[in-house]
Every structure is written in structure tokens, then in C-alpha cells.
């Protein structure tokens, strides 16, 4: 088992046009992704013939044509060379599918499960795709603790001054790490509060589970009225996928959903849901900007002064190495 055995969301659907292939890099390997009449397809980017980057080619009759010598490559990797009609060249093809508004791929022949987002009853809010200039471990660390939200985030999360009041519980299972946090919601301007039905005295609950095939966290974020103890206001369910581009860069694919029934107030929601997505994008971009300063920080957590919010980090590093990278040896690189 290695990285590409897992399904990765490599592009949002809107990022891949009908005619123009795109290059994506996953775990150091660059692929050319393109559309055919039957769906989406991906091949190793280097043309097997002379290594020309295939993503600069064009799609003709459901095949990717290399612009250098005109060799044609089918979605399953079978090639045709116009000048060598009897040869049967072969390119490495990947299994591709378009789901949840994104293009996903994995190594052909792998039998890993497709990640289950548990959003079958939810309303889609939007998707986002962000490059972060830091290794996957460092990026994941940031997304599985709430202590940073006081300083990095504007809307969601907890104030630094009241961070000590935030309760946090970490549950480690065989293939997942769950973190549940509850604490006082930071003060928001009252129009924003009202627009999302957040009570004046609210507790914010951020409850997520991280899984590792592929590496992703699904966040359940909601408010509780501090006076009644009842849930109130909007709830968000956000799935964030962490795809290593190479050892120093990570791509985030974000899929946001809400419990709100859009058909109940179509006009209001047509304005409100894009605003929610803008908030989500803003918060993720703050994470990305900050994490860029961590690009050269040592990955290892050894000798770090870890706090109570960091319990999930160590457990997640182990599962990432074991499940995502398929390292079975006892010596795990990242925890060492």
C-alpha cells in the first residue's frame, strides 16, 4: 500500500474543462488529467515515447494526443503511434471518477474504499481547493487541534483569552482519530450572529473524525445555546482532504455542507450559502498563509512541548504512516 492506492480529490470539477487537460502532482508523481465523453481519465504525465508532458496535449476522440509526435493515449493507457502502426505502446493509467464536485483518482487495480463523507442528507454549500506550502504532517497537525483558532481564525473557533475554558476530548480508534471540542463561541458582530441563528450566549462545538485512506477529516460544527443547552443555529459539515503534492507541499480539497433545507427559503439561501462558503474559504486561506512559514520546520514531534490540545497529533502521525503510507515497520518516520 502506498499513497496512490487511496482515492485522492485532485481537482474540483470546475477546474477541469472539457477540452484542456491539466497536470496534477500527488506524492511526487505528476499525472495528466483529462475529460472524455465517458467521464474523467488520468495518465502519467510523461509521454512513454519521449517524455513530453502529456497535459500539454489535446483530447481527440476520447484519447489524449501528445503534441510532440502525435501518439494517442486511451483512458486505459493503450497507445497508438501514427508512425509505428504495429507497435502497442502502453502508458500508466489511473482509475478516475467524478464525485461530490471533484475529480478523484487512485492507482488502477487498487481496491481501497471510496471515502464516505456522510453527507447524504445535507445541502452542498461549496468546494474549495488550496495549495499549502508545508508538508502534509504539519498541515494535518493544524487541522486537528483548535488551539490555533484564537489567533488564526476570524469567525469560527475560540478566543485565545478563553481557550482555557474549552473542553477537548480525543478518541483514538484502529483507523480513526476523533476530537470533540466545546467552548464559548467568540463574540461576533450581531448581523453575522443573527444571519446564522447563533444565540447571544453560545457554545461552539467542533467535533471531527480524521481517517487515513486517504487522509481526511470530517468536521461537524454547530452551536449550543449556553442558557438552555439546546442546539441552535446553523450546522456545518465540512470534509477536508489532505493530498501531499511532494515532501514540502500539500493540497487541501474542501467540501462544505449544511443541514439547512435550501428549498425552504431559496432566495435567502441563494445569498446566505455563498457567504458561508466565503467564510470557509477565508478561514482556510488564513491557515494556508500561516502554515507557509512552517515549510522548513522539522516534521518530528519529538522534543516538542505539546499541550492538551495536541493529543490527536501523535496518534494521527502513526495512523498516517501505517494506513496512508502503508509502512508496517515499527520505526515510524514521523513520530521518531
Amino acid at each position: 500500500m502506498s499513497e496512490l492506492d487511496h482515492w485522492h480529490p485532485v481537482l474540483l470539477s470546475r477546474e477541469l474543462s472539457r477540452s484542456k487537460p491539466r497536470a496534477v502532482t500527488v506524492a511526487g508523481r505528476t499525472l495528466a488529467v483529462f475529460r472524455t465523453t465517458h467521464g474523467v481519465a488520468a495518465l502519467d504525465d510523461a509521454c512513454p515515447h519521449r517524455g513530453f508532458p502529456l497535459h500539454r496535449g489535446t483530447v481527440e476522440h476520447d484519447a489524449l494526443v501528445c503534441p510532440y509526435h502525435g501518439w494517442r493515449w486511451s483512458p486505459d493507457g493503450r497507445g497508438v503511434s501514427p508512425g509505428n502502426p504495429r507497435s502497442k505502446p502502453c502508458a500508466t493509467a489511473y482509475e478516475c471518477v467524478e464525485r461530490h464536485g471533484a475529480v478523484w483518482l487512485r492507482r488502477a487495480g487498487a481496491d481501497t474504499a471510496f471515502p464516505y463523507l456522510d453527507v447524504g442528507g445535507h445541502t452542498p454549500v461549496g468546494t474549495a481547493h488550496t495549495r499549502v506550502d508545508a508538508p502534509i504532517e504539519v498541515v494535518l497537525d493544524n487541522f486537528i487541534e483548535v488551539e490555533h483558532t484564537g489567533d488564526v481564525h476570524t469567525f469560527l473557533g475560540y478566543e485565545r483569552a478563553r481557550m482555557a475554558e474549552v473542553e477537548s476530548e480525543t478518541t483514538v480508534a484502529d483507523d480513526s482519530v476523533r476530537v470533540w471540542n466545546r467552548g464559548p463561541q467568540r463574540p461576533l458582530p450581531s448581523p453575522a450572529r443573527r444571519a446564522f441563528g447563533i444565540p447571544r450566549e453560545a457554545l461552539f462545538v467542533d467535533d471531527w473524525t480524521t481517517r487515513f485512506s486517504p487522509v481526511h477529516s470530517v468536521y461537524e460544527q454547530y452551536f449550543v445555546d449556553a442558557r438552555t443547552g439546546e442546539r441552535a443555529g446553523d450546522a456545518l459539515r465540512i470534509a477536508v482532504f489532505f493530498t501531499p503534492v511532494d515532501d514540502r507541499r500539500t493540497d487541501l480539497a474542501v467540501f462544505a455542507y449544511t443541514q439547512v433545507d435550501r428549498s425552504e427559503r431559496p432566495l435567502v439561501e441563494a445569498l446566505r450559502l455563498p457567504a458561508v462558503m466565503a467564510f470557509v474559504r477565508w478561514e482556510v486561506s488564513r491557515d494556508a498563509k500561516l502554515l507557509a512559514h512552517m515549510a522548513d520546520a522539522p516534521i518530528s514531534l519529538r522534543h516538542r512541548a505539546l499541550g492538551r490540545f495536541d493529543r490527536a497529533l501523535v496518534a494521527s502521525r502513526k495512523l498516517l504512516d501505517r494506513i496512508y503510507r502503508g509502512r508496517t515497520d515499527a520505526k515510524l518516520r514521523v513520530v521518531e
Binding site: 464516505y116 456522510d118 447524504g120 442528507g121 445535507h122 445541502t123 454547530y222 442546539r231 441552535a232 450546522a235 455542507y257 449544511t258 443541514q259 439547512v260 433545507d261 435550501r262 428549498s263 425552504e264
Partner: peptide
């Protein structure tokens, strides 16, 4: 396990008891 109601919750209420607001459009 993954089944959801195929109808929206606000038009799927039994007499006299609305769905809680935190349940999504199509209840699981």
C-alpha cells in the same frame, strides 16, 4: 446503514411533532 429519507424533513413530519432544526434536509 447509509439510507436517508428520500423526502425532505419539513414535508415528512408525523402529526404534531416537527423535526429538530439540526437534522439535515434529508434525515439519515
Amino acid at each position: 446503514e447509509r439510507l436517508h429519507l428520500h423526502t425532505v424533513k419539513r414535508f415528512s413530519t408525523l402529526p404534531g411533532h416537527p423535526w429538530p432544526s439540526h437534522v439535515p434536509t434529508y434525515p439519515a
